[in-house]
Amino acid sequence: MDGPVKRRYDTSRRQEQARENRRRILAAASALFREKGYAGTAMPEVAKAAGVSVQTVYKAFANKATLLKAVFDVTVAGDDEDVPIAGRDFIAEIQAEPDAVRKIELYLDHLAGIAPAVSPVQLLARDAAAADPAAAEVWAQMRREMLLAMTYFSADLLATGQVKPGLTADDVRDILWTYHGPEQYELLCLERGWSPQRYGKFLRDAMVAAVLA
C-alpha cells in the first residue's frame, strides 16, 4: 500500500518542480531578452539566471525561438496557466457587451494595459526573424494567431449590426489586425514617447472611425 502512495507523491512532486522550473526559466528569459535582445541571449545564460541546468531548459523548450514564443504567450496571458485567451474573463466581458463602440473600448483598454510588456516581445521576434529561421516561424505564428483573434473580433462586431455598410468580415478583420500590430506601439510609444493610455485612445478612435457606422 505504501508503494503506490509514494509513487503518486513522487509524481506530484516532480510535476510541481517542473512547473517551478518552467516559471523560473520564463522569468529569466524574459529579463534577458529585454536586456540583451534575442541574438544576444544564449540558452546557457538563461539556465544560469534561472538556477537550472541547460538540459532542463532544453527539456522544457526545444530551442530559443520556442522559448521566445512561450515568453510572449505568458506575457499576453499574464500567467502560465493552461487557459486559452479565448477563455479569459476579459474576452467574455467583451462578447457580452451589446454595443460595438464599447466592445472596442473594452478591448483597447486591455491592449493598452499589456502593450508595454507584450509589444517589445513581438518586436524582438520580428527583428530576430530576419536572421533566424526558427524565430521567423515564431513571428509568423504570432501573426497568424493575431489574425485569427481579429477574425473572431470582426464577427463579434458584425453581429451588433453597427459596422459600416459595405464592409465585409474580412475587411473589418484586416483593419483591426493592422491597427493591432506592434508597429503602432513602436512608432507612437517607443519613438514618439506617447503614453500607453494615449496610444490606446488613438487606436480606439481610429478603429471606431474605420469600421463602425
Rank of each mutant, 00 (worst) to 15 (best):
M1I: 07
P4T: 07
P4W: 07
P4H: 05
K6L: 13
D10M: 05
R13N: 08
R14Q: 12
Q15I: 03
E16T: 04
E16W: 03
Q17P: 02
A18H: 00
R19N: 09
R22P: 02
I25Y: 00
L26S: 06
A28T: 01
R34T: 01
E35S: 12
Y38M: 14
Y38Q: 14
T41W: 01
T41I: 04
A42M: 12
A42L: 15
M43W: 02
M43C: 04
V46C: 06
A49H: 05
A50W: 02
V52S: 04
S53K: 09
F61N: 01
A62S: 12
A62D: 11
K64R: 13
K64Q: 11
K64V: 09
A65H: 11
T66V: 11
L68I: 10
K69S: 13
V71G: 12
D73V: 05
V74A: 15
V74M: 10
T75F: 08
V76A: 11
A77P: 08
G78K: 07
D79F: 09
E81L: 09
I85N: 06
A86R: 04
F90G: 05
I91R: 08
I91S: 05
E93G: 00
E97C: 14
E97I: 00
E97H: 05
P98F: 09
D99E: 14
A100Q: 09
I104P: 04
E105L: 03
E105W: 02
Y107A: 05
L108R: 11
L108H: 06
A112M: 02
I114S: 04
I114K: 09
A115E: 08
P116F: 07
A117R: 13
A117W: 12
P120I: 04
L123F: 06
L124Y: 12
A125N: 11
A125T: 12
R126P: 05
A130F: 06
A130E: 12
A131L: 15
P133W: 10
P133Y: 03
A134Q: 13
A136Q: 07
A136K: 13
W139C: 10
W139R: 02
A140P: 10
R143C: 02
L148K: 07
M150P: 01
T151H: 14
T151V: 05
Y152T: 07
Y152G: 09
S154C: 00
A155T: 11
L157M: 04
L158R: 10
G161S: 08
Q162W: 04
V163R: 07
K164R: 15
K164E: 14
P165Y: 07
G166R: 14
G166A: 08
L167A: 06
D170C: 01
D171Q: 06
D174Q: 13
D174C: 00
L176S: 01
W177F: 15
T178F: 10
G181P: 02
P182D: 07
E183Q: 15
Q184W: 14
Q184E: 15
L190H: 08
E191P: 02
R192T: 06
R192S: 08
S195C: 10
P196G: 07
P196R: 01
R198V: 13
Y199V: 03
G200T: 07
F202K: 07
R204D: 11
D205L: 14
M207C: 15
V208A: 14
V208L: 06
A209Y: 06
V211F: 03
A213R: 15
A213Y: 01
